[in-house]
């Protein structure tokens, strides 16, 4: 079975600082990482391969430095990687078109796994978009995936109800954080991942040279939040009584 895991390199949102004068998030110099739930996606792909056999390819649309991050997924157990260089202007339309064209260039995939959403933009668009472009079924928000040679069954959390769905292949699946616990690669696996191939494709290599985005991000506004940050850390009884006094003064005990 040919399995493709879509993984995005993101800025570590937990590390974002706010520019004190403009109130805007400062994105330069923030450490980058593989989006959290993409590791769950990779883990699930490896599990499926362990069960039904096949090959796991990590596919990333991103900047050249993403290659380093992709190695973490190869260390977990993915077989190879493809990095498609992202054009200057990319939106969901561009990114998903590049992903689907890259999958077509690979000769197609039986199973494509994405995360329910990325941690930085969190739109959840890419999975369903890729499924739409390839015109294949999409099983979203899966917290349990059971792959068999001829069909895949998934338990899905749709917020207001739990849905069990099944599909023939090819199918695109998006997984939640709860689907599994991503394995931590051993030192040997980390060293071994250096030998696994990562191909770098340009947009023209996959016949997608002049894509136009459907939206432009024209501004990222800051979100002000100022807090008192009064932390009581001394004697517990004293701390508790100070907190209770403060709450009472704020009129919140009534």
């Amino acid at each position: 079975m040919n399995i493709v895991v879509c993984a995005k390199q993101v800025v570590d949102v937990g590390e974002i600082k706010v520019n004190p004068s403009s109130g805007k998030p400062m994105l330069e110099g923030i450490p980058k990482k593989i989006s959290d739930i993409d590791k769950n996606a990779c883990e699930e792909a490896i599990k499926v391969r362990e069960k039904v056999g096949g090959k796991v390819t990590v596919l990333t649309v991103g900047t050249p430095d993403a290659k380093e991050r992709m190695k973490e997924l190869l260390a977990m157990g993915a077989d190879n990687g493809v990095l498609v260089t992202v054009p200057d202007k990319a939106d969901h339309l561009v990114t998903s078109t590049l992903i689907s064209k890259a999958i077509q260039k690979m000769g197609g995939a039986d199973l494509i796994i994405c995360a329910e959403a990325s941690i930085d933009q969190f739109s959840g668009q890419i999975g369903p978009r890729v499924a739409g472009l390839l015109n294949i079924p999409q099983l979203t928000y899966c917290y349990k995936v059971t792959a068999e040679p001829q069909k895949l069954t998934a338990e899905r959390n749709l917020g207001d109800r739990l849905v069990t769905s099944e599909s023939s292949y090819p199918v695109l699946v998006t997984v939640t954080k709860e689907v599994n616990q991503p394995r931590l690669p051993s030192l040997m696996q980390i060293l071994g991942s250096a030998k696994k191939p990562i191909e770098v494709w340009g947009t023209s290599d996959i016949g997608a040279a002049d894509l136009k985005p459907g939206i432009e991000t024209i501004d990222i506004k800051g979100v002000a939040m100022s807090r008192k940050n009064i932390v009581f850390k001394d004697d517990l009884d004293e701390s508790v009584s100070k907190l209770a006094d403060s709450l009472s003064k704020e009129g919140l005990l009534g």
Binding site: D91, H92, L93, S96, S123, G124, Q125, I126, G127, P128, R129, V130, A131, G132, L133, Q138, T140, Y141, N157, L158, G159, D160, T174, P213, G214, I215
Partner: peptide, 23 residues
């Protein structure tokens, strides 16, 4: 913008070849 709505909107916009803004 339920979970169903978001996956639907993304698929619709991919088939129409247009942009989409979620939430």
């Amino acid at each position: 913008s339920s979970k169903d709505g978001k996956e639907l909107a993304a698929r619709v916009s991919s088939k129409l070849g247009v942009g989409c803004s979620t939430d």
